[in-house]
C-alpha cells in the first residue's frame, strides 16, 4: 500500500511517515496541494492521501475537490490531517469528498485507528 503525505511542514510529514511505515505503507511526500496533483498527474495512484488544510499555493480543501472531480482517482482514500477544527469546516471537507478527518494534535494510535475504520489497516488481534 502506498500513501501520499501532503503537508507543508517537513516535521509533520516525517511524523506521519513514521506512523504509516510502521503498518507497512510506502510513502511519497508533497509540500502542498499543487505538488501533490503533479505527483498524481505523473502517474502515481496511492491508496491513501493524508492531507493538511493550510498550505501555500494550493490548500488541502482545493486538492480534495480537484481529486474528487477526476475519474482516474476514484479509488483513492482521502484523509484530512489538519489543525482546522471548526465544526463547519469538517462538514465542508466531508461534503467535498474527504473520507476521514483527523485534527492535530494526534497520537500514532489515532492515525492507525482511523485507517482501520477505512479498512486500510488491520490490527493484529491477540490469539
Amino acid at each position: 500500500m502506498h500513501a501520499l503525505i501532503i503537508d507543508d511542514s517537513r516535521t509533520m510529514r516525517s511524523i506521519l511517515k513514521r506512523i504509516v511505515h510502521e503498518i507497512g505503507f510506502e510513502t511519497t511526500e508533497a509540500a502542498n496541494g499543487q505538488e501533490a496533483l503533479d505527483v498524481l498527474e505523473a502517474g502515481l495512484v496511492p491508496d491513501l492521501c493524508l492531507i493538511d488544510w493550510n498550505m501555500p499555493l494550493m490548500d488541502g480543501y482545493t486538492f480534495v475537490t480537484r481529486v474528487r472531480a477526476d475519474e482516474r482517482w476514484r479509488s483513492m482514500t482521502l484523509m484530512m490531517v489538519t489543525t482546522e477544527s471548526e465544526h463547519g469546516q469538517i462538514v465542508r471537507a466531508l461534503a467535498a469528498g474527504a473520507h476521514e478527518y483527523v485534527i492535530k494534535p494526534f497520537t500514532a494510535d489515532a492515525i492507525v485507528e482511523k485507517l482501520e475504520l477505512l479498512g486500510l489497516a488491520v490490527r493484529e488481534v491477540p490469539a
Binding site: 489538519t82 482546522e84 494534535p105
Partner: peptide
C-alpha cells in the same frame, strides 16, 4: 517550531 506554533495556534 513552525509546526508546533501552527498546532498550538489551531488549538
Amino acid at each position: 517550531l513552525g509546526e508546533l506554533v501552527n498546532i498550538v495556534g489551531g488549538g
